[in-house]
Design a protein around this nucleic acid. Structure first.
Lengths: 230, 230
DNA sequence: TTAAGTCAGATTGTACACAATCATGGAGTC
DNA sequence: GACTCCATGATTGTGTACAATCTGACTTAA
């Protein structure tokens, strides 16, 4: 069962199904960033009419996964370095807030749950030899903190597609696993701070963690470009 | 000219025009929160077909201004107290970030611009006798800081409709002007901090300012309910 | 050679008809 | 009397045809 909560009913309408499919195609990299899309092609490709397809595309546009220009065409969003920087900065502020609030209300059971997620992720990391594409619990840790904070709007915001998309572009370059181990240590320290009910510290640690993640992305991209063409 | 920047082209498509109209109707309170809407009625009302109307409604749903349930109906979102609390908390974190970053890069010209906005608002406040509905520059101050911060995604986020809608519900109760004067003083202190390039202080002041605004909303609503039916 | 103008092709935007689904009310039964 | 079932109306979801708009190439003239 996937719907963790809040009655996420299975999609019955065609538009919902095609929305999930296209969204997944973008997030998984099946559609390249910047790739041009046409309604007719997509409709044929997915075997649906243009009407439900359009609905899906409009939603994706509102979620900033595709860009459209009237009467002209549409394309998959390509996040440039500046935008990724900006998004990471926003994410740091939001997750910092989540940590601060979570520290005030967290229960022992929830602490155990957080540690469980980290342990599961650590195991999965070893078994798959660091293949980042098969980590189902990476962002679960962050989302879980947001949920513990009790701020549903914050949780909803941090669960948005744009963040997944941002991370997806990261996976393209990051084959190295050093960062993963470092990240794991940082995660543990965040949980420690939450357990100590030190909201201020937890917020600072989370902000640093996100800054470090962003820095690793920059470095990984630089290395990749140095290998590729320079 | 309204398009401040970024080539906000005038809408040519019917769906864009009807989107603006419905959005304005919701934000202005012409459509009550919780009011039920039907596609057929709205289509007749605005003299358009259901197709462009549906596009507008889908966008509004993604922006959390209306709620839809498949095959059943749709209604204008009604923000309950808890949600407003959560949104204010998020807004505080985001605007705090904007202040922190703006302090690092602000120019004397931009400081003057901020003071200009405050002065204009102060004048408007006197001339219209504190009628909150005719304040075109209230949120301009906040958006301007976000713009100065240089984080375009942050600016886009803080310019979202949901925040306008949240404030709109506030205007319903707030006729008193004490809060406006207090808010004015707080705004001035924020600008002072920005001018001193004290990002940390600016962030703290902005967070407090938003907490105070939220508190005033709670009090105003309590007073209104006490007057009305209690 | 370059520039503007125009025309065709492609693509999106809109309208309308029909199908799928849901909610409400009443009839029937236990 | 309360409950279940079913039919009917209302509402949204989908398919298809057509109109509006844009892009790019080709022509033509300076």
């Amino acid at each position: 069962m996937k719907d963790d909560q809040l009655a996420a009913r299975e999609p019955v309408a065609t538009s919902e199904k095609v929305l999930e499919r296209i969204g997944h195609s973008i997030l998984s990299g099946e559609f390249e960033p910047g790739e041009r899309l046409t309604e007719t092609d997509l409709a044929q490709r997915f075997g649906v009419s243009r009407s439900p397809l359009r609905e899906a595309l409009l939603r994706l546009e509102e979620r900033q996964l595709i860009e459209r220009v009237p009467f002209s065409g549409m394309r998959v969003v390509s996040l440039d370095d500046r935008t990724v920087d900006e998004l990471y900065e926003i994410r740091g502020a939001l997750e910092g807030l989540a940590c601060r609030r979570a520290a005030a209300v967290i229960t022992p059971e929830q602490i155990a749950e957080l540690r469980g997620v980290l342990a599961q992720r650590s195991r999965a990391l070893k078994s798959t030899r660091g293949d980042a594409r098969q980590q189902p619990t990476i962002q679960d840790f962050h989302i879980l903190i947001a949920r513990i904070s009790g701020n549903r709007e914050l949780e909803r915001m941090l669960a948005g597609d744009i963040w997944h998309y941002m991370r997806a572009q990261y996976r393209r370059w990051a084959r190295a696993r050093e960062r993963m181990d470092l990240g794991h240590a940082e995660h543990l320290r965040i949980v420690d701070a939450l357990e100590a009910r030190d909201g201020e510290l937890a917020e600072i640690l989370m902000r640093r963690h996100i800054v470090a993640s962003r820095q690793e992305l920059v470095d990984a991209k630089a290395r990749a470009e140095a290998r590729g063409a320079a």
